[in-house]
Nucleic acid binder design. Structure first.
Lengths: 225, 225
DNA sequence: CCAAAAGTGTTGGCGTTACACCCATGG
DNA sequence: CCATGGGTGTAACGCCAACACTTTTGG
């Protein structure tokens, strides 16, 4: 049995929501091919680490962040997607709170930046396709899960929760209905600290409940009977 | 930049529904490691083919089938998942109609067979994990899509459609409600042939409608407002 | 006292579930 | 004529969408 050897890479689609916009982390390529163009952060998988470990390593190298939400997105492996040779890339989707979304100190200022995810600049390789798919996936999950909560730093207010859902869904939501629904999921737990912001009433704050720490799956809509 | 070379494989989870049971195609390994144990069909990706092409090639080699529904499932790449060395495998999920689900002629009778997908025999490598995830994914998609229709050979009857949904969802469905809903999706188109089976009234038959040929996504349930 | 965001309930409409009998055929 | 699966309608209920004003604070 033949076992051709290929290169395996991971690429990261790191999202954050800032100023009512969905943003993605991009890096400027310093080497050929596509030198000077924007691309997704990523790199080759070493022989001793798992795929997710490689993705987390790359994420830490660019942002210094650890312990954020990460999930595998899709694997691309067209023979000619990389002009250097055959590279199969496993793409990961990561969510980071805007308050933590800083490019790593010490990097060149022009080296990496968060940019609009829905109208990104011209990207290297097939990265535009990867970003588009990640945006679609995140939007879908916003419809039926609490995944978007990972875009917020705890503790957060209900208005902040509503903002991220509105950005991901691309439409405005009714405040009263939204609050009733998100609280009914029993995925949030109230903290005892209030957020004092400006010249207005302070807001209650919440964190992910310990019993429902992560994503929440609900029944589908086609056959609920 | 270092570019370690790894082996990349594809593995196939080929489902069919027969006798009110979800079944998966397994092959008996003829070589070490895990010689004699059941495993998923699959093989290494050659340097010139895409991942999906490799998956379709393996599927054709085992079953002779072409043009069936196939989608990428997930990629596994733990360093020690294969004792021979570092192998990253991209798993694909395929759906074949029971009427076409034959192991390729000329194969050893004991070489490959469809077996219960929810209680499979002991499997080689991490294939039990892969099968479990595929079963879960198929069940989820049955909740909100018409994907299960690809488990049927056209033309099919509404009773056959209901049967595959019941098997995937693991519960019985109400006949009148089911028919109203599945027809309301506008994904089926009636043919002019009737199915005459036995000592009972003949059934109307349907095929996937040309305008809704494939999977159908519906709105989520969390924020439909 | 004014601006700004937080917080809070009710009702009408629609979609979903529950449910039982007649039809067409082959033997 | 009987057994077998195919085919069909309605009514009660529950859930969801729509909708506007009061509260609390800072300046």
């Amino acid at each position: 049995m033949k076992r051709p050897e290929l290169s395996v890479a991971v690429d990261l689609v790191v999202f954050t929501v800032r100023a009512h916009t969905l943003e993605v982390l991009l890096v400027r390529r310093g080497i050929q091919p596509y030198r000077g163009q924007w691309a997704l952060p990523g790199g080759f998988v070493t022989t001793q680490e798992s795929l997710e470990a490689a993705a987390r390593r790359e994420l830490a190298e660019e942002t210094g962040l650890k312990g954020v939400y990460i999930e595998q997105l899709y694997t691309w492996g067209e023979p000619k997607r990389d002009p250097r040779g055959r590279v199969v890339t496993v793409a990961y989707l990561a969510l980071v709170p805007a308050a933590r979304a800083r490019v790593k100190a010490g990097s060149d200022a022009a080296h990496a930046a968060f940019q609009p995810a829905r109208q990104p600049p011209r990207l290297a390789f097939d990265h535009a396709v990867i970003v588009a798919r990640a945006v679609e996936r995140l939007g879908t999950k916003a419809e039926y899960s609490t995944l978007p909560l990972h875009l917020l730093k705890e503790p957060f207010t209900l208005s902040e929760v509503q903002e991220v859902y509105e950005v991901l869904l691309g439409r405005d939501l009714d405040k009263r209905n939204f609050r009733r629904k998100i609280l009914a999921l029993d995925a949030l737990e109230e903290t005892d600290v209030m957020r004092r912001d400006g010249a207005h009433r302070p807001a209650r704050t919440f964190r992910l409940s310990a019993s429902r720490p992560y994503l929440l799956k609900e029944r589908g809509i086609l056959f609920p009977f």
